[in-house]
């Protein structure tokens, strides 16, 4: 940084803040809409469903006959006792009104902007290319995963990240292809600084929803801010190009999972609570790993 002198550094600093906003956009696809993806495993993003008019009434009647009425009479079934002993994941939500507002903002962002643009993009660009672009950006973020493995003393995983990067950058032509998947021993992790903080014993803090970026927590927000320094795209200049790259990546990512968010909403009664809970549960699992 000294290289640039003070004034330029300040300008750079301002630029970095703006980059941060860009970074938020950049992250939107993987975080705002990936939780539903994991919530509902395996649904198609590319297929259009042809479903019947009535939702299987005959079969459901058949299903009903399986239920024994005695179960419904039991005021204190075994599972309640079991459940009482289970670990319950809770998250404070002091910014509830802000968060809910941002949840709706992201929802509209998806339906009014991201989805239509990504749908058009999908119609023009073949799937192979879109997957390639997705892989390229993933590969480019190796430093984030690598450094966080080191910070968590996961040296074997760090070695795997490095090896994957080498294989995918060369044999996989700058990361567009993913030949590393042919080496099952090179498992890919998904380490980030939020998880690193968690392994140091720092709790979630509270829930927070960012516009463009989606669900997060206080801890994970600091984590993302740290990770930004490890992402090559954050250093692209000028700003317009960086924003452009970021936006492009988001559209590309969305094009690969159109339908996922819709499915999530279809299954949820309270989508806001559902997403919050899914985010926290998923993060908890990643921290455990």
């Amino acid at each position: 940084m000294r290289l640039y002198g003070n004034k330029i550094f300040m300008n750079r600093f301002t630029a970095i803040i703006i980059f941060y906003a860009a970074f938020i956009v950049f992250m939107a696809a993987p975080s705002a809409y990936s939780s539903p993806d994991v919530l509902l495993p395996g649904y198609g993003s590319e297929s259009i469903m042809e479903t019947g008019k009535e939702p299987l009434p005959e079969l459901l009647i058949a299903a009903r006959s399986d239920y024994s009425d005695k179960d419904y009479m039991d005021d204190d079934p075994d599972f309640l006792k079991e459940e009482a002993r289970e670990e319950v994941i809770r998250i404070a939500d002091p910014l509830y009104y802000w968060n809910k507002g941002m949840f709706h903002f992201n929802d509209k962002l998806y339906f009014w902007f991201l989805k239509p643009v990504a749908t058009a993009y999908r119609a023009v660009i073949p799937r192979m290319v879109r997957t390639g672009v997705h892989n390229f950006f993933y590969n480019l973020e190796m430093p984030v995963r690598f450094v966080n493995c080191i910070l968590q003393a996961k040296f074997e995983a760090a070695g795997n990240e490095f090896a994957r990067f080498i294989v995918n950058s060369t044999e996989g032509i700058l990361g567009f292809d993913n030949p590393a998947k042919n080496y099952p021993e090179l498992k890919n992790g998904d380490e980030d600084m939020g998880q690193t903080f968690a392994t140091y014993g720092i709790g979630n803090g509270f829930y927070i929803v960012w516009p463009f970026l989606g669900p997060s927590t206080l801890r994970d927000t600091f984590g993302m801010a740290g990770d930004r320094f490890l992402k090559p795209v954050s250093y692209i200049e000028p700003l317009e190009v960086s924003l452009g790259v970021t936006g492009f990546r988001m559209i590309n990512a969305t094009s690969l999972k159109i339908g996922d968010y819709e499915e999530f909403k279809k299954a949820a009664l309270e989508p806001y609570e559902g997403l919050r809970n899914a985010y926290i549960q998923n993060r908890q699992k990643k921290v455990r790993e």
Partner: peptide, 18 residues
């Protein structure tokens, strides 16, 4: 549980809210 997200816990959080 899909990717660590339990179906039961997720719906429980929603039903509780209601």
């Amino acid at each position: 549980q899909a990717e660590g997200i339990s179906l039961v816990q997720n719906y429980r959080s929603q039903f509780n809210e209601i």
